[in-house]
Amino acid sequence: MFQTERTLWLAFKAGDRRALDQLFKTYYPNLFRYGIKICANADVTDSTLQDFFIYLFEHRQGLSVPKNTKAYLFGAYRRKLLQHLQDTRSTRIKQQAFRTQQIDIQFSIEDMVIRDEQELHTQQMLMRMLNDLPKRQREAIYLRYYDDLDIRAVAEVLSITYQGTVNTIHKAVKTLRAHPGLEKIVAS
């Protein structure tokens, strides 16, 4: 096992297949969850992810060492998947990429943490409020809190500025906190 992201990446660049395995195993689950949110299709997500890693492996020598591996992989895979959706003809999923820059992430009740009956109600409300947010705020919230990327990493994935990302997440959190019943969920 490679201990740091840097050694892992350098080994990957050198063509070490164990590094490829480790990179794939480490990031496949998160990227798969993200892909499913983007295209709503498990087959497409799985096959584009494999294509993506093959692409990385074939182009490994030209890749620089990313500052943040996870952010790099999320951003690069997002572009690859959108490109694929754009090129696919006559299926519903193609249409998800109609607008290339904006992803329509929908939160479902399975995404919510529900321990008891009382929580069910607030979490349903939270889910509705989340899905009512503008798309970019929704995706930023997803990346920041669902996938635990820091703000700089979110900015990298969305290709927007750091300041823009702070504002986007701030607006979303403000909207959620202003809603009666949700003050505690997004607690201060």
């Binding site: 496949y28 689950p29 798969f32 969850r33 499913i36 939160f107 399975e110 995404d111 919510m112 943490v113 529900i114 939270l126 919230i141 920041r144 809190y145 669902y146 997440i169 701030h170 959190v173 403000k174 959620l176 906190r177 969920i185 997004v186 607690a187 201060s188």
Partner: peptide, 17 residues
Amino acid sequence: EDAIAMVKGLSFKLKDI
């Protein structure tokens, strides 16, 4: 308060892979 909320954030249940 907004900053605290942004730091604490939201909890989600991760889809099982």
